[in-house]
């Protein structure tokens, strides 16, 4: 398909805004490639607009499963975990999670 014929579903600016929200970054080169694949996914998702035979009025919210107030957790303290456990997957400092700001 010629480039001009391809429906532009997402602009570069829009793509970059989404990347910012997602906390991801892409190089110019990656961007081109990624946007193409991304548009394909959006097209795929646009499949929800295909018509379904039968009664469309039956479209409804999912019945949310409910929990009675009385079945919620009681307000009773459970011992917390030791600080060493909490920090066991990271280099901590004086009991804190710590990130050093590296000035380039």
């Amino acid at each position: 398909m010629a480039e001009s014929q391809r429906e532009q579903k997402i602009s570069k600016e829009q793509f970059r805004a989404l990347a910012r929200l997602s906390r991801l970054s892409f190089s110019e080169e990656e961007e081109e490639q990624f946007i193409a694949g991304f548009e394909e996914m959006i097209t795929f998702c646009d499949g929800i607009n295909s018509e379904i035979e039968g009664d469309a009025s039956s479209i409804r919210e999912v019945d949310a499963r409910e929990i009675a107030l009385g079945d919620l957790r009681a307000d009773e303290v459970v011992p917390s975990l030791p600080n060493e456990k909490i920090l066991s997957n990271v280099h901590g400092e004086r009991g804190y999670f710590a990130v050093k700001r590296v000035v380039k």
Partner: peptide
């Protein structure tokens, strides 16, 4: 996140953010 996640995961995160 950029170095840690693979391409398919990034695609799905981006799609999820979009929708």
């Amino acid at each position: 996140r950029t170095y840690g996640f693979g391409t398919e995961v990034k695609r799905r995160i981006m799609l999820g953010t979009y929708v």
